[in-house]
């Protein structure tokens, strides 16, 4: 039967990989291609890249910077797909079908849509008709307000007032193939996953769910996977700073009888 996937999420800002905390603080941690080849060596199940550059201006690196950055998302995707032989999802800043075409043509297997789906659900329908549901991931950022999970748009800045579960149902009807949920309150906090909300989401939809936000150590993965039947466990920061953190987490999950590869 299908394995539970453990998925590193990488944030791209102005052509570099950054670390994120509370969706506000971003620390540069390196060259995109070097990071990709490191993850490839770790034999990861899948990679998700989210481009969080607010202006779609790619940094034309100053000479005094030591890390090479890239000038366009096409170039980034093309370079990554030359060295990564696993499913690749690209999201961030997708507004039109043309944005999706560009990513798929250059090597993305899936694309993720966030804010634009909230502004215009038609893009989800169009994308799933053109590329199949399996290609369309809906990415949702939420915060807990008065005990309810509420969807935020525009890189987690804007409260939409829409309940997370209502929104996921709507996306499923529109043709989404997978749901990526990210708890803003837990971003970079390392205090464990929001298991309670993830459970509610899993009950609400039959779509595969990938949960992100809050992983502090590999035991958080085990806790989540043992409590909720989930397709993918995602994390960002934890994989950046700990040596061999990914293969070690896999070993721990296996030892804990979670069905991983």
């Amino acid at each position: 039967m299908l394995k539970t996937r453990l998925i590193p999420v990488l944030y791209i800002k102005n052509g570099l990989i950054v670390r994120s905390e509370g969706f506000e603080y971003h620390q540069n941690i390196g060259n995109i291609i070097n990071q990709a080849s490191r993850y490839n060596e770790w034999d990861v199940d899948e990679l998700i890249y989210i481009d969080i550059s607010h202006q779609k201006e790619y940094d034309l690196r100053r000479d005094d910077h030591k890390i090479k950055s890239y000038s366009s998302i096409e170039e980034i995707i093309k370079q990554i797909s030359k060295i990564c032989f696993m499913p690749l999802t690209f999201g961030g800043g997708i507004r039109t079908i043309e944005d999706i075409d560009l990513r798929i043509q250059n090597g993305a297997d899936k694309i993720s849509i966030n804010t634009e789906a909230l502004l215009n659900i038609d893009i989800v329908k169009k994308a799933s008709l053109k590329y199949g549901n399996q290609c369309v991931v809906i990415s949702v950022d939420y915060r807990i307000i008065d005990n309810e999970p509420v969807v935020f748009s525009h890189y987690g800045q804007k409260n939409t007032g829409i309940n997370l579960l209502t929104w996921i149902r709507r996306c499923e009807e529109a043709g989404a193939g997978e749901i990526f949920i990210n708890a803003i309150d837990r971003d970079g906090m390392a205090n464990g996953y929001d298991t309670e909300t993830i459970k509610k989401v899993a009950k609400e939809t039959s779509l595969p769910i990938i949960a992100c936000g809050g992983a502090g150590d590999p035991y958080d993965f085990v806790d989540l996977a043992s409590e909720v039947k989930i397709s993918g466990i995602a994390a960002g920061n934890i994989f950046h700073f700990t040596e061999r953190s990914y293969p070690r987490a896999k070993q721990l999950l296996k030892k804990s009888n979670i069905n991983v590869r």
């Binding site: 996937r5 199940d45 549901n133 399996q134 997978e178 779509l207 595969p208 590869r261």
Partner: peptide, 10 residues
């Protein structure tokens, strides 16, 4: 089971 069959399998 969900369809499509998508992901890693033995």
């Amino acid at each position: 089971q969900p369809i499509p069959h998508m992901g890693w399998n033995d």
